[in-house]
């Protein structure tokens, strides 16, 4: 299987934060959800991939090419959508498009016009007068009009209302039908990914906690609920995170198959959401 993005032992040291030798890869034709709490290292990783930050170690390969040696060629094939609007607020959509288009080798004016209509973007409006959702759609229109093969999106849904979020997710799932494309989608709102992501990479405190297919996660992990007296030193070991209250406990385990052996039929088993998984990892067993 061809990989479109490969990150190997990527390291970056800051005064108060370190990205610790992280590894993950995205195969062609898939959407990778990049999740983790705020400050976990998602944006740092994305900035390192875009060479906006300089890495201290490791390797990043995009389309099989080193991301610094072939920086220009790679950036011609990448579309980016960032959380904060990064376009010149004073320019109109058309003026901004004209500048950006002149930088890309493979710009397709017809495609841009098509998306402009589809997203109902007013070409003569200044970017500062656009709503957050429209700014995101403009970024997306730019990203899609130069035939980007890899879309890198840093928190594209943050600040969007429900409707705009769903629109974005629909566009992405349509887009990924092209098997040569790939998407890296960072978010702290995991419900965005429940529907559309094929792979999940979960980062916390600069470390990758897990990186695998979403199905594998959902097949193996389970949220279990039961009576508190089921918890003892032995059984607690199986949990990634446990929440207890006076009535009982709720915990996350990573190996569903062990479940029957340990708890027999005394517990309720639920399919976890990505949210459950992220929160239990963050909580850990500190309450134990």
């Amino acid at each position: 299987m061809d990989t479109i993005l490969e990150v190997k032992n990527l390291r970056k040291n800051f005064k108060d934060f370190t990205l610790k030798d992280i590894c993950f890869s995205i195969p062609k034709g898939f959407i990778m959800g990049f999740i983790g709490p705020n400050g976990a290292g998602k944006s740092t990783t994305i900035k390192l991939i875009m060479n906006l930050l300089k890495k201290d170690g490791g390797e990043i390969k995009i389309f099989g090419l080193d991301h610094i040696q072939h920086e220009n060629e790679i950036k011609n094939r990448i579309g980016f959508v960032f959380d904060e609007n990064c376009f010149y607020e004073e320019l109109t959509i058309l003026e901004m498009k004209k500048f950006v288009a002149s930088m890309y080798k493979n710009w397709e004016e017809n495609t841009f016009t098509k998306y402009l209509k589809e997203f109902q973007l007013p070409p003569k409006k200044k970017i500062k007068d656009l709503s957050k959702g429209m700014k995101m759609k403009f970024s997306l229109a730019i990203a899609l009009s130069h035939q980007a093969e890899l879309l890198i999106m840093d928190e594209p849904t943050s600040g969007l209302d429900h409707g705009a979020r769903h629109e974005l997710l629909d566009i992405l799932s349509y887009l990924i039908q092209d098997e040569n494309k790939g998407v890296l989608f960072s978010t702290h709102i995991t419900s965005d990914l429940d529907k559309i992501a094929d792979y999940i990479t979960f980062i916390q405190n600069g470390e990758i906690i897990l990186s695998t297919t979403k199905d594998e996660i959902l097949d193996n992990y389970a949220v279990i609920k039961g009576d508190r007296n089921l918890l003892n030193q032995e059984t607690r070991k199986y949990f990634i995170g446990i929440k207890e209250n006076q009535f009982g406990f709720e915990g996350l385990i990573s190996n569903k198959n062990e479940l029957n052996r340990v708890f027999a039929n005394h517990v309720v088993i639920e399919k976890p959401s990505l949210e459950n998984i992220m929160i239990h990892y963050m909580r850990g067993k500190e309450n134990v």
């Binding site: 875009m50 220009n72 010149y88």
Partner: peptide, 18 residues
């Protein structure tokens, strides 16, 4: 000042420009 306000470096360095 305009480029500073718009954080233009992020855009410019994400585009294929040396």
């Amino acid at each position: 000042s305009i480029e500073d306000k718009n954080k233009a470096d992020v855009l410019l360095n994400s585009l294929p420009i040396r």
